[in-house]
Nucleic acid binder design. Sequence first.
DNA 1: GAAGTCACG
DNA 2: ACGTACGTGACTTCC
Length: 447
Amino acid sequence: CAGACADAIARLRAVLEPELDEKGMRRLFDEVEMPLVSVLARMELNGVAVDTGALREMSESLTMEIRRIEEDIYASVGHDFNIGSPIQLSQILFEELHLPKTRRLKTGAYSTDQQSLEGLRGLHEIIDHIYVYRELTKLKSTYLDTLPFLVHPQTRRIHTEFNQTGAATGRLASSNPNLMNIPVRTELGEQIRRAFIARDVGPDPMLLAADYSQIELRIVAHMTEDSGLVEAFQNDDDIHAATAARVFNVPIEEVTANMRRRAKVFNFGVLYGLSDYGLSVREKISREEAGEFIRTYFEKYPGMQRYVSETIQRVREYGYVETLFGRRRYIPEIHSTNFNVRNAAERAAVNMPVQGTAADIIKIAMNRLDAEMQRRNMRSLMILQVHDELIFECPGEELEEMRKLCLDIMPRSLAMKVPLKIDTKTGRNWGEMQYGEATGVEEFAAT
DNA sequence: GAAGTCACG
DNA sequence: ACGTACGTGACTTCC
Ligand SMILES: [Mg+2]
């Protein structure tokens, strides 16, 4: 290909390069994406160290546990079947056991996904078994039995591929293996994370994780200038508790755990274009109640309402939306005659500027961090990015310098009406990280 | 290769 | 073009 490819690329350039200027993405391209290419290359080469022995041990013990659960499931049904086949499982649950039917899939079977099983809890012992079976087999097949084979024989590390051009919002993607979806939410997930270790970077190797706290909501606060959101972040309030206080009309001290949990659902839901129907299903409330919550939310945060309406208007008029740095996403589906497709396009349009601006921000930080690490001849390695967080492998004696560097550089990617807050954690592995220093309001006042 | 499912932010 | 919350990648089943 070499010759033909080079020739094709040269001719493509003649067509594509002018588009960068026409579309206002020249600076994004020259100053963010192009410098990032080599940063990502270094990260891929750096790789991450993994304790394959630990993964193999976990896999083995899971094999036995999964076998026990299979036996339980077959016993309660009365015969064997392939639990991994959603079609067979649907047949068992809804035809043989006569459990109440869930939503219908396009294949004619009924859904057995987590949300559907949730509604069947308590109706039959098999439901909890399937739930656990799913968790264990998922983690075993995707991580425990796969990662050990992806360890490079020379480096003894796992080298992911970062795709810089795959995601429509400007996010990165990771594959072969995907290291952006390593488990964390369950106990077993955390155990898997413990197999990702600091090892080859010098004496007393440590991992450092630095993440943007609530970056998407802070970006929305900045974009909408909604006074409620802006003030909450300027005060460094717990944003979900602050939202609960507003929506449920109570003082913030009287916000209960459940009110806060709901407010969190609202805050995230609004970024994704949640409907009254979606909220009613998730919160197990009536559609009317859900609609009322959404109305109240927008009343309390009128800037949010404005942002959603104006973004949809804009994508209808121009056919695209963009981030604060001018990254564009064209969404032609906004003109679809199909109601569902059109609504999906509206939700994507509302979300992209927020998700995309967060992606722009962390990319800028990665470039600046990489440059400064080189300038200082540091031995620390940038090894992973997971959308709002960066992971470094550091010699122990460099750990605090690296942490300080993150706390200094990451908040300054973009000056906003609210601070960009950074949390940091450190540990010998990715599963046992201890919170450390974070940025505070003082740093913001200084910027 | 599509469908269903589920891991992450 | 869709399962009425956005963005991904990977696994198993089944045709
Ligand atoms: Mg975070």
